[in-house]
Amino acid sequence: MQVQSKLMSLVKNQNFVLLLIFIALNVYFASATKSYFQVGNYFNMLTQNAALLFTAAAATLLMKTGNFDLSTTANLAFSGVLYAILAGMGLPLTLAALITLAAGSCFGVVNGLLVTRYDISPFIATLGMMFIGGGVALLICDGQSVRNGLPANFMGLMRSEVLGLPISILIAAVGVTVSWIMAEKTLIGKYAMAIGSNKNAAALAGINVDRVVMGLFILVALCASLAGIMTASRIGTGDPRVAEFFFMDVIVAIMLGGTPLTGGRGTVIGTVIAAMIVIVIGNGLNMLGILVFWQTVIKGVILIVAVTINEKFSFEKLRDQATPSKGDAGAGNGQTMEEWSLRRGNIL
């Protein structure tokens, strides 16, 4: 009985299910193509997607508060271009990177201000920043990729290795670990969850909601900016049109990993496994020589099926919980006057 219930709870644990899917995919691809199950291939996958991993991990914390950031793509492009321009001007790479990170974090400051101070919904605020940032990225490089005058060691960052590991994998590992510690071991994770679950209660408990949300927007912006620097180093140019679907991949990984758009739940580990699943599928299908359009179709189908299963699970849970307490419900806190005026003011 004990064993069975433990088994059941394991099956219901989303991260475990995701992990099983991840393993199954690996087994399948490894058996289907020889070139897949190679250390080199895994290194390749991780190097190419290091930015996605640590950005998604950090953005999980933001999403737990019920906020999200669509401007990461624009930030990534902007930061890559800026970094290349600064490097091309002859600045030391470290200084160029620091300036770029400072500039990139401005995305987070603006997003955070719009959301917390001006009560604009995260969707609209960050969508607006997506347009503005994308435009600025094109503007500073006049619509052209930055290639000229780059120092010889420009691509060095992504080429160097520490302890036999490519440095970008190390950066991803460190980034993911930091986000995990923040989510699980510090108060930030708890506060983020409280804000997403019941913002009012969090504020009344004395949590400075605005400051937490603001900080997490900046954290995500920093990650996206670093992602831009890493991408520019990897491809050797500052390309304003790079990684068009980065923000989509980030959000998809987070949602597949079990964090809903409304926040309140979710784990960094779930996000990371989900991101790995997406990465592995892309790589595996490539290895199998599947044509691009089928890859797109498969991506769409997997997305819908995965989330369907996911939401059906949590739906069942929610319903089981909702039934007993219904009827005892006390004062309803549904549409308050504040909410009404907020909606009129076009909060999402």
Partner: peptide, 27 residues
Amino acid sequence: QELNIVEDLSVEQNLSLGQEKHKFLFP
């Protein structure tokens, strides 16, 4: 009047919410 309690946290986490003593945000 409204329940101001965070559903997704445990009882213990709710009891200390916002009042935690911490060191560099580690509770």
